[in-house]
């Protein structure tokens, strides 16, 4: 069951990126350790604040693990925020698009998560706060047969641990 909850949480964060208005619907599901999600305005230091005002994810080019200038800018903001709110531990989820094979994409997602982790560590985030996991191509956020979806799925998402 914990894995299912993790997926649902990730999916919900994704929904916020696409349409912030869905937050109200999420708040109708209490007791999932996401109290910071409720309310329309992001409370500074809340998970919602991180997702909406900092940006919880960075994107990659096809079959690449290189952090783009845009990604580095996002991770700089993440590092700043995570330093300020250092009570959070978090998991970096690495993902690949569907245009690769199962095993390779597992490793590719892991490499993306690692690149993200290394960058945050270099910006002073303590390694003990960070965990990485790869979902390969198993958890796309956008579904279609062209680059408009694939480019959203090639990502590393920083997921704050709900209990921290």
């Amino acid at each position: 069951m914990p894995s299912v909850m993790r997926f649902s949480r990730a999916a919900r964060f994704a929904a916020i990126i696409v349409a912030a208005l869905t937050i109200a619907a999420c708040a109708n599901k209490p007791n999932e350790g996401l109290d910071g999600m409720s309310g329309a305005a992001a409370v500074p230091g809340s998970q919602q604040d991180f997702v909406v005002n900092v940006g919880d994810r960075v994107f990659f080019e096809s079959d690449s693990t290189e952090l783009t200038p845009v990604s580095r800018a996002t991770l700089d903001k993440q590092a700043q925020w995570l330093s300020q709110y250092n009570r959070y531990s978090f998991t970096i989820e690495g993902h690949a698009d569907e245009r690769g094979t199962r095993e390779y994409n597992i490793a590719l997602g892991a490499r993306r998560a690692q690149a993200t982790r290394d960058y945050l560590a270099a910006r002073g985030i303590n390694a003990s706060r960070m965990r990485t996991i790869s979902y390969g191509k198993e958890r796309p956020v956008a579904v279609c047969n062209d680059i408009s979806c694939w480019s959203q799925n090639r990502r590393a998402v920083t997921v704050l641990n709900a209990g921290s």
């Binding site: 997926f7 999916a11 198993e138 958890r139 796309p140 579904v143």
Partner: peptide, 8 residues
């Protein structure tokens, strides 16, 4: 199930 949350 849906592709984003496929049950395997």
């Amino acid at each position: 199930g849906a592709k984003e949350r496929r049950v395997k």
